[in-house]
Nucleic acid binder design. Structure first.
Lengths: 115, 115
DNA sequence: CGGAATCCGGAACGATACTG
DNA sequence: CAGTATCGTTCCGGATTCCG
């Protein structure tokens, strides 16, 4: 007995819904980068460690589909594609900010090795 | 080149560290329940949908190991085992609260079907 | 009652090669 | 430059069984 239904998928908690939309390894790093200005595909690729074309493409597509970022194709030669944050995406930034701050505190209290 | 090392695992962002510690499908639901009082194993089992013994056992052990909850074995017959939140665990509650609130807002703006 | 151990399938993910 | 297609691999998590 699912608590919530959306696009034929079931979610049992609101937190699960958040993770489905902006969770995973790469979505928050992507949102974090495009929050201030538009980024090109290749910029994101270079900037995020261990991010494959497959995963970048997949995550960008989902973020666009879910309304967190916009995709703009600029018809130059070669073509330039830029990704920028939407209003909906902006609303996720305070969440990511808090998670980052909490993460830093947690790592400090766990005596993390900076490297 | 990892940015952070802890117990021979590498983390690239603080958010990733948070997810490693209290992410996954069940850890936040568990923390959310024990935040106000101690819960028994069987209570948690009944309360959380689709939670198997394997996953509950595994997640409880990790949460105890990472210091978010305490385990108390009360030597009755049959033995009673209770899990309660620690100070470190309490510090995660505002994060979960925020994620829940954001989740509800997100679901509303996405026109979720309550069910 | 409160777990631990084992087995296993499917989805997620990564590497590589290729394309408009 | 910005992806897509294909193929392997990993790994999460479910089912089952057993134990103090």
């Amino acid at each position: 007995m699912p608590q919530f239904l959306k696009d034929n998928k079931k979610y049992y908690t609101p937190v699960e819904y958040v993770f489905a939309k902006i969770g995973g390894t790469y979505k928050m790093p992507i949102l974090w980068r495009v929050k201030d200005r538009a980024w090109r595909y290749s910029e994101l690729k270079k900037s995020i460690a261990h991010l494959s074309d497959r995963m970048l493409s997949k995550n960008l597509k989902e973020l666009v589909h879910d309304g967190f970022i916009d995709k703009e194709v600029i018809p130059e030669i070669p073509v330039r594609v830029e990704y920028s944050i939407t209003k909906k995406g902006q609303e996720a930034i305070p969440i990511i900010t808090m998670l980052r701050e909490y993460g830093f505190r947690l790592m400090q209290s766990d005596g993390i090795d900076d490297k």
